[in-house]
Design a binder for these strands. Structure first.
Lengths: 232, 232
DNA sequence: GGGTCACTAAAGATATATCATTTGCATAAA
DNA sequence: TTTATGCAAATGATATATCTTTAGTGACCC
């Protein structure tokens, strides 16, 4: 197939009215699940042609993603999917933990039985996805599981920051899902739900930390083990 | 860039700036110091004309700022400076504290005597700015003081998130600087420097928390005291 | 008075043309 | 061979024209 770009972008189900939004969400999704390798160039014209739009809305989408740290603008003005090194990876994992613990704590007072049921439902769907090895779906469901909790806080302002971190960790999500590590993840989801039932802030935090450390944290360490400087 | 004639034209650049970048930074600055009131509409054409550019780069700048949560895109696609309510303000202050404590802790191992001297220098400049009531400069210096510290960590990935929060708190920065509250702030800077000298993580964190709570935190509470729903 | 519709003006969204910069490559010079 | 030079192609940046959506206004009907 003639794709002057070097990756395939899965099409997005929901409809976005404007072109720039459609492009934005499509790229964002791809980055979130690590579908585009670090270092890949995001040339405006090529993308525009591939996606069937003019350069203008594509440019806007790229700018947005750059501002969310999901893409990197080089000195020569080219835009690429960023590399990160082991040190930055550690910082991002720590950030995820701090941000998500905070988000969970602040959401806790607003957690209802209905919400917990919903999370249990998502978790159950994840269990099925694991046995069927639907890794792409797992990634999305995992994010849903977390998002539903944090968004319970009506004054929440932290989600955009968390999503920025998720985006930067995108390539490792893919790694995580590809391995059997998904088990750990699901286990910790049960812990999280337990902590919610107990309305226990401390327990909730440590469950989330464990979920992150033994999920994507471990996957990242495996990936970064050999590489010296930079990988994803 | 060699000139095929006799001379080389020295590149003034190094900071060659594109139209979209110029607009972006100009707006960003204005938002950061609260120079634009919440609710103000950011019409593309009007801005473009005012700034002497075409709509295209202005659009890009607005999109970037929207993605950093510094601007809000309404359902009707108009872009405005966002309002926030008291609850959101509290969340943002908490976020600042958590993010900046983390950033400071992770920077601490990289803090050198030279860096501390630099921070002392900035703080001294702030003292002078306070007595001369240069409030605009104070805002910038205050940010510099914090940024210099957090950026000491070479793997730092948290600055963009912190800046997003600063942007959202922009209007309150203005309030803070307008009042006598600047004193508190400078006091706590001395504490921060003390903690750095002692290489004391705990002390550093509490100094930063105090700096934030008694600086912008207090200013915000004053401003939001009367208003019920939303203000800035 | 209240509501609907049509029309107009304003503002956003996009496509396209053009300008500017960067990169690659071929060729020439050292 | 290596380095410099100078197009030419690729790519980003911007201005502009045009299309689409939204908001506002007034005529008209009930």
């Amino acid at each position: 197939m003639v794709n002057s770009t070097q990756f395939d972008l899965p099409e997005i189900s929901g409809e976005y009215i404007t072109a720039h939004e459609a492009v934005y969400h499509r790229l964002r999704n791809a980055l979130m699940v690590g579908a585009i390798k670090p270092g890949t160039a995001m040339a405006i014209r090529a993308l525009a042609q591939y996606l069937g739009h003019s350069p203008t809305p594509v440019r806007e989408a790229l700018r947005r993603l750059s501002s969310e740290n999901a893409l990197q603008v080089l000195d020569n003005r080219r835009i690429i999917v960023p590399f990160i090194n082991a040190g930055q990876f550690d910082e991002l994992i720590l950030l995820r933990i701090k941000l998500e613990c905070l988000a969970a704590e602040r959401a806790l007072p607003y957690v209802s039985q209905v919400l917990i049921e919903k999370m249990i439902g998502i978790d159950a769907t994840m269990d099925r996805a694991v046995t069927r090895k639907h890794f792409d779906m797992l990634s999305v469901l995992n994010q849903q599981f977390h998002t539903v909790l944090y968004a319970a806080n009506p004054n929440q302002t932290v989600m955009p920051l968390i999503e920025s971190v998720w985006l930067q960790l995108g390539p490792f999500h893919r790694q995580m899902m590809d391995k059997t590590l998904s088990y750990y993840l699901v286990d910790h989801h049960k812990h999280i739900i337990g902590a919610l039932n107990n309305r226990d802030k401390k327990e909730l935090c440590s469950a989330i930390e464990a979920d992150i450390r033994e999920g994507i944290g471990r996957a990242g360490q495996e990936v970064l083990a050999g590489t010296d400087a930079k990988y994803a």
